[in-house]
Simulated assay, not measured.
Amino acid sequence: MSASAQLRAALVDGLTGDDAVDDPAWRAAALAVPRELFVGSFFAAVPGSNPTAYRPVHRTDPGWLEQVYSNETLVTQLDGRTRPEDVAEGAVIGTPSSSSTLPSLVLRMWHQLGAETGHRVLEIGTGTGYSTALGAHRLGDANLTSIEYDPAVGATAAAAIKAAGFAPRLVIGDGLLGDPDGGEYDRLIATCAVRYLPPRWLHQVKPGGVILATLSGWGLGFGLVRLVVTAPGEGTGLFMPGYTSFMIARPHDRPPRQSLSLLPGDERPSRIDPEVIGTWTGSWVAQLAAPSAERMGAGGHQILSDVATGSQARTMPDPDGGWAVVQRGPLRLWDQVENAVEAWQRAGEPHQEGFGMTVSAAGQRVWVGSADGPGWNLPI
């Protein structure tokens, strides 16, 4: 057995609990697809750097193959343009824009999707092509279409997929618009995050089919929803347990911001501890309440800045105890967040699996507890 095959087997055998690969077909795919074909080089974060700096790791570097078979996300592009091959030496600062997602999450999502033999699947976000190759191994080339937004990323992925021996249909384009040739799919899986489910997806997945996608936004909250399409353009589903995050689809990313000035406003005591919106589910709830706001800060010092209106909210210690909040602008962002957090707390502060989603002609609504419970409309 080659070193690569040994490392693949060790990786798969080392996945336990919810990440364990129990389905024989997906286990076979994970053992067969060589990840090193898809991440010939990648960026590693420099420990302790602030802002985060990245150094390139190449095939010729010691320990490269072992890192490829770590259960970690490997960054393969920064700022939508910089590849590891573009950095001769040293480290660079940038924002990750493409990656090879940690294998346990890739396999878990394919399993959660419930794709079976004979199903036609649309994948949004080819990325490095590793996930695509796993899907092609399990489902067959003819049943898988994958769409990549970035032409350079897509070309590299296509070469790797071919080298791995697979030939699914690959498309360069805006995956948020669905398959440009139309068609009906049984399943749709997204490897990027979106602010709302694009309407085309809900028309290209046939009734009874499933959409698995991560909802996110500018508040750094994430929730993975498994939506069953009930009619063209309509569906309902629950959010999945665990912790799933992806880079947001580029058309859904926030507009560029040059700087932020914290301006005076109206001050009052905060009804909630601001630290709650720095937690995984708390940040999700805050984002639902203020969907066009960017969240910054840490701990009890939180800053919300609304991209659409310029409204602001910031929290700080109250000299008399507790916390104070300063708000300005047409939206009272902290009022919205407080109301949402209190509704979540009354529901028992559930993790994401306590939330659901309903899509209809009226819009896209995320709710907590039950479909007729407290809810928030997504920004479409």
Rank of each mutant, 00 (worst) to 15 (best):
E234K: 14
R226H: 12
Q204M: 12
R254H: 12
R226Q: 06
S259T: 11
Q204F: 06
R257N: 11
H252F: 09
P251T: 12
L176P: 02
I189K: 05
S216E: 09
I189W: 08
V228S: 03
L262S: 09
V225A: 01
L215E: 03
W218F: 13
V225H: 00
G175Q: 08
M240W: 06
L262T: 03
L212A: 03
P207Q: 10
S216P: 05
G209Q: 07
L227K: 02
R200F: 06
G183V: 08
Q258W: 07
L212G: 02
L176K: 08
D253P: 00
S216W: 05
D186K: 06
P199Y: 04
Q204A: 11
F222N: 02
L220P: 01
I248V: 14
A231T: 04
P180M: 12
P241Q: 13
F246P: 00
M247K: 01
G183D: 09
I172R: 08
G178V: 07
G175I: 06
I189L: 15
P180N: 12
R254E: 15
L260H: 14
L202V: 02
S245G: 12
P198H: 06
L197F: 04
A190G: 04
F222V: 01
G233K: 12
Y185C: 08
V229N: 02
V225N: 00
W218M: 13
R257C: 12
D174W: 03
G208R: 04
P207A: 13
Y196D: 01
S216F: 04
L260T: 07
V194D: 01
L202C: 03
G182I: 05
W218A: 11
